[in-house]
């Protein structure tokens, strides 16, 4: 079983940069640009991996190990999804995965503050702020199965009856996905203007193979979240899941094309509405409405 989930981890890790590249192409086409090749992220990672790493003077070992922790967390998330196997019993558990995601943010946030750069510190502050607001929504949106008494395993989400409650949950989860994968309207991956970056700002002081690790971590996390969104929707076969991933990836690029990034202090409103959706979804299930 461990071998199977390791295989799953490798497959997700292998495809994660392709998904990132494909989303870039899709968005470029929507905006009337030719865009880069879909395999560009692989080339970028390979190039960065060969380069030396440079860190600011006098940083602590935390800044050295933080990229490794971030990638380890993302890979654990990928291994925990109930795809190849019904999920390693104690790993694919919703609450613990949320604590796990906090581990990677904690390490990257400390590394950012360690770098002595105000921009990195600003990014760490904003990342923690948004994470604190996202966490309740993420948890509540994924608790649909638990509300029906089926426990907090991710695998319990697979056979959930889909109705209004499911629809509300996926709406909430979509907004969480935008926040967690650093997408417009909450963040912007493409920006190189320091005052507006959040997730990109965290990796500002990393370079070379360390930057490759940080970027690989965010690609793997992105694909894992897309897969998680697919699990919330009806289907259950590998093909429907792949279809849902494509649909969601397309949806993200459409949102990125149609909307502008909102001001930082409007993000809470957006996330609050996501929380209301998630809470309404679970309240429907808790109160026993079988809509």
């Amino acid at each position: 079983m461990i071998a199977l989930s390791l295989l799953q981890l490798l497959v997700i890790a292998a495809f994660a940069p392709l998904v990132q590249g494909a989303m870039k192409v899709m968005r470029a086409r929507l905006q009337g640009r030719p865009g880069p090749s879909a395999v560009q992220p692989y080339r970028d990672l390979a190039k960065l991996w060969r380069k030396e790493s440079i860190l600011p003077d006098g940083v602590s070992p935390i800044a050295i190990v933080a990229p490794g922790i971030a990638l380890g967390v993302a890979l654990t998330l990928a291994a925990a999804l109930p795809l190849a196997v019904p999920g390693i019993p104690s790993l694919g558990e919703i609450v613990s995965l949320i604590f796990l995601l906090a581990l990677s943010r904690f390490a990257l946030g400390l590394a950012a503050l360690d770098s002595r750069s105000a921009f990195a510190g600003m990014a760490a502050s904003r990342e923690q702020t948004i994470a604190a607001l996202v966490e309740p929504t993420l948890l509540v949106a994924l608790l649909g199965a638990a509300a029906l008494g089926r426990g907090t395993q991710l695998s319990a989400l697979l056979h959930l009856p889909f109705g209004l409650a499911g629809l509300l949950a996926i709406g909430a989860f979509f907004l969480v996905l935008l926040a967690e994968t650093a997408r417009v309207p909450i963040d912007n991956q493409e920006t190189h203007y320091e005052l507006t970056m959040i997730h990109e700002g965290l990796s500002l002081e990393f370079s070379g193979w360390q930057l490759a690790l940080v970027q690989a971590a965010s690609y793997v996390r992105q694909l894992s979240f897309l897969l998680l969104a697919g699990l919330l929707l009806p289907g259950g076969t590998a093909w429907t899941l792949a279809a849902w991933v494509i649909v969601f990836a397309a949806l993200v690029t459409v949102v990125e094309t149609l909307f502008a990034k909102v001001r930082l202090f409007e993000v809470p409103q957006l996330l609050a509405s996501a929380f209301v959706l998630a809470a309404a979804s679970i309240a429907l299930r808790l109160l026993g409405a079988t809509l």
Partner: peptide, 10 residues
């Protein structure tokens, strides 16, 4: 189980 991979990354 949760920290095997992060520890390995470290």
């Amino acid at each position: 189980a949760l920290v095997v991979l992060p520890a390995a990354g470290m």
